[in-house]
Amino acid sequence: MAQWRSTAEFRFTKGQPTETIWFYEHPYPEGQKSYSKTRPMRVEEFAPEQAWWGNEADGFSTRTTTEQAWSVDFKQRMADAKAKAKPHWDKAEQLSDEASGLSAELRQLRQQLKTLDKKSTDRPVLQKQIQQNTASIKTLKAQQARARQAGDALYWPIFNLDCKNPHIGEQVSHDPKELLARYRQQQQSMADTRRQIKDILDTALSSQREEKA
């Protein structure tokens, strides 16, 4: 079975946004599974890519999708990602505004507390309000961070150009190094999920304690 290494073709033109990204999967030479110092790449191997490349003068009109070449509509991909991420980003902005409002109120309360006599009966009331505002601001900032992260998680992966050839079926690797790397990635993902759940529970319990207080 032929071995392949996937490469992305980028053509950035000044003043023009990137709308389409082309990929070309270059095959290793017959009987070769990787490149090395003793078995390096050879220029003549890239004759098929050179023939396929086309001419920028006519907008690469001759370039076509093949078993080794495919394109990604990056413009549409970005638009879709922004649409999905926007509600989360908007929520983060809303939470940020709420936290800013409470922060301004908190500064006023602290200033009022400084002007009160130490024996004033209003001090306990102000101190309680300050504690509540401080806790609320902390909760809002934690919620804001999660909302922002949720939006970013939907948007930024579009720039990950590790794109598999859609013309080739799923290939299962039995390489121990790849399996261990995949296992570590899964463990990290599980740890991140546990941390997110813990943050949500901590926030919920904190709010309940504040209500009871």
Rank of each mutant, 00 (worst) to 15 (best):
M1R: 14
W4N: 02
W4Y: 15
R5H: 15
R5S: 15
T7A: 06
A8P: 13
F10W: 15
R11S: 07
G15S: 01
G15Q: 00
Q16M: 11
Q16A: 05
P17K: 08
T20K: 06
W22L: 01
F23Q: 06
H26A: 11
K33C: 10
T38A: 06
P40S: 09
E45Y: 03
E45S: 01
E45T: 00
F46C: 05
F46I: 05
E49W: 15
A51P: 12
W52Y: 02
W53C: 04
G54N: 08
G54D: 09
G54F: 05
N55L: 13
D58A: 08
F60N: 09
F60Q: 11
S61V: 06
R63L: 08
T64K: 15
T64S: 07
T66G: 06
W70I: 01
S71T: 00
V72T: 03
M78L: 05
A79D: 05
A81C: 02
A81F: 01
A83G: 12
K84I: 05
K84R: 09
P87M: 04
A92T: 00
A92F: 04
D97Q: 15
A104D: 08
R107Q: 14
L113N: 14
L113T: 07
K114Q: 11
T115W: 09
P124S: 04
P124V: 02
V125A: 13
K128F: 04
K128E: 01
Q131M: 14
Q131P: 12
Q131T: 14
Q132S: 12
N133W: 14
T134D: 12
T134R: 08
I137W: 05
K138D: 14
K138A: 14
T139Y: 13
K141D: 08
A145P: 10
A145D: 15
R146M: 15
A147M: 06
A147K: 00
R148I: 12
Q149N: 11
A150N: 04
A150R: 00
G151P: 02
L154P: 02
L154H: 05
Y155S: 08
W156S: 12
F159S: 01
N165A: 01
Q171W: 00
D175H: 03
K177V: 07
L179A: 13
R184N: 10
R184W: 10
Q185N: 10
Q185S: 11
S189F: 15
A191P: 13
T193S: 09
R194D: 09
K198D: 13
D199V: 10
I200P: 01
A204N: 13
K212M: 10
A213M: 13
A213L: 12
